[in-house]
Nucleic acid binder design. Structure first.
Lengths: 135, 135
DNA sequence: CCGGGAATTAGACAAAGTCCAATCTTTACC
DNA sequence: GGTAAAGATTGGACTTTGTCTAATTCCCGG
């Protein structure tokens, strides 16, 4: 799952996002590896080769990508938000000891008995977090 | 679901917690209403009648209660942790617009296909969060 | 009533994230 | 290509949630 510069430009344009240097660098960090990264890690990785991206831009960009549906926030740790380049429905396994976060495919885990919502309300998403730790 | 002072003292003692004024006040706030409250709300409510509980004590006490299994943390909003006086397995409905957090009974929502864990790992808990919003 | 361990406290501190006004890039258009 | 307006980026100040510390206070057993 690796993208060329051109493909990333295309991806951003398709979501109505102007492809600037910084945004491409951040998109590259997110989509080249398929891990769950926190903002501080993304900032560090984006500036690895050549520092040109500020903290403010990383936050602006992550919020923009999230709003435009390019990435998804995963809230498992109150200390930091993780960003997930996979926006397809799926769930998470969180290692409480190590902080490691891995995917559970949506097909593997079935949920039944979803509550009926009050009128005028829609489900935005269902997050399942399986918290594990060493015995 | 209301407790007398005596019952709260008993509850704390049963969990190996010395019943001080402040801890009883915080326990009262948590167990008298059955809502999900954040630390700042608990601080405000504890000091409503007569201010005698500091911010540090609220955090110390919530962490102590959590470690001793009296309450449970609910992580749905990266901005603040909610504390849930109900430690029985159950799930949550989170209104993204209003910040309102309500329970879903464990019986109502079935999950199947839980992943097999690596050896030496145990499941600490499974959190299901249904995020809803106005259409 | 006294001594000591436990609990509480104010306030300094830390980390994640937001905001702002100044500056720099992009883009659309000629 | 050149250019001006719209949009993006920036450092740094700021906010918020939560932690830490060292000093004080409380409370219980003897």
């Amino acid at each position: 799952m690796s993208y060329t510069r051109e493909e990333l430009v295309e991806l951003l344009r398709k979501h109505g996002i102007a492809p600037t240097h910084q945004r491409l660098e951040i998109a590259h960090v997110l989509f080249s590896r398929c891990e769950h990264l926190a903002a501080d890690q993304i900032l560090a990785l984006a500036n690895e080769r050549f520092a040109e991206t500020s903290k403010a831009t990383v936050y602006n960009t992550l919020n923009l990508f999230r709003d435009r549906g390019l990435i998804r926030e995963v809230i498992v740790d109150p200390k930091r938000v993780f960003y997930d380049p996979n926006t397809e429905p799926h769930h998470h396994l969180y290692n409480v000891d190590s902080g490691e976060l891995t995917d559970i495919a949506a097909e593997d885990l079935q949920i039944s008995g979803m509550p009926v919502l009050p009128p005028g309300m829609v489900t935005e998403g269902v997050d399942v977090i399986v918290r594990i730790r060493a015995l």
